[in-house]
């Protein structure tokens, strides 16, 4: 296996008696798509939260490009090239769609500490932001308030905010939820096109998308990885069929 860009070793997290993450090991190679699937409550969102630093694990290690980032705050991780989208959409409702993405450009290309010049008229950043919106198919709504977007459009916006940061690794928590069939097809093509330039940890319930996109699939159940392998291997795995996919898949 190629050198892992994102490496998770022995990660554990309990809420009281509930072991949400129970000794998870994962390796995501640079430029590949690694899907994490599993039933509701398996601990997928909690896992992403720990990788990104929003949730502190009880034990274990998270490495990005060989560097231990386990103790870093989320904004430091973002600066190191990690980006995420949220399962529960998380945008800036009072900003325009463009300004949401422009702030993402600011987060990755600049800093907060400049007190002169209007930020809204920074043409270079607005251009990058608009290009990001074009990639996800949301350029037509650049001027609208983010709060006016539909649920699916907010997912697209989140993806644009992650993309413009040009991250080394992206953690996507159900990016296709709420997208119509056309939007979904577009986003699947987009994510597929990122292969090679960005490592993606993809949590998704849309199995067609997962098996179409993933280079590797890990199956999570009750906080443990019960199987990990290529899509074909996972499809054929009797344990996975019993635990999650069902016999008809």
């Amino acid at each position: 296996m190629a050198e892992a860009l994102l490496e998770i070793v022995g990660l554990r997290k309990s809420y009281g008696a509930l072991r949400v993450t129970d000794g998870v090991d994962l390796r995501v190679a640079a430029g590949t798509i690694h899907a994490v699937i599993g039933p509701n409550g398996a601990g997928k969102t909690t896992l992403i939260g720990q990788i990104f630093g929003a949730i502190r694990p009880d034990s274990g290690q998270i490495r990005l490009a060989g560097r231990d980032i386990t103790g870093l705050s989320p904004h430091r991780r973002a600066r190191l090239g990690l980006a995420r989208s949220f399962q529960i959409t998380s945008v800036l409702p009072e900003f325009s769609v463009l300004e949401n993405v422009a702030l993402a450009v600011q987060g990755s290309h600049g800093s907060a500490f400049r007190f002169v010049w209007p930020a809204r008229s920074e043409a270079k950043w607005n251009g990058l932001a608009l290009a990001g919106l074009e990639r996800v198919g949301l350029a037509g709504r650049a001027g609208d308030l983010a709060s006016a977007l539909s649920h699916g459009e907010k997912r697209q916006l989140e993806l644009a905010m992650a993309l413009v940061a040009e991250p080394r690794a992206m953690l996507l928590d159900e990016p296709l939820a709420g997208a119509g069939p056309e939007e979904a097809a577009r986003l699947i093509a987009l994510l597929g096109g990122l292969r090679g330039s960005c490592a993606i940890l993809l949590v998704e319930h849309d199995m067609d998308a997962v098996f179409q996109l993933a280079d590797t699939i890990s199956v999570l159940a009750q906080g443990r990885v019960i199987a990990s392998g290529t899509p074909d291997a996972i499809r054929a795995d009797p344990v996975v069929r019993a635990a999650y996919l069902g016999e008809d898949f």
């Binding site: 705050s73 998380s90 800036l92 702030l103 600011q106 987060g107 800093s111 905010m161 940061a165």
Partner: peptide, 19 residues
Amino acid sequence: RALAACRQNRVRVRALGLD
């Protein structure tokens, strides 16, 4: 702009790499 963003959603601001 970053300050106004903090008012709306601190978690998101942090995820974008700003403190």
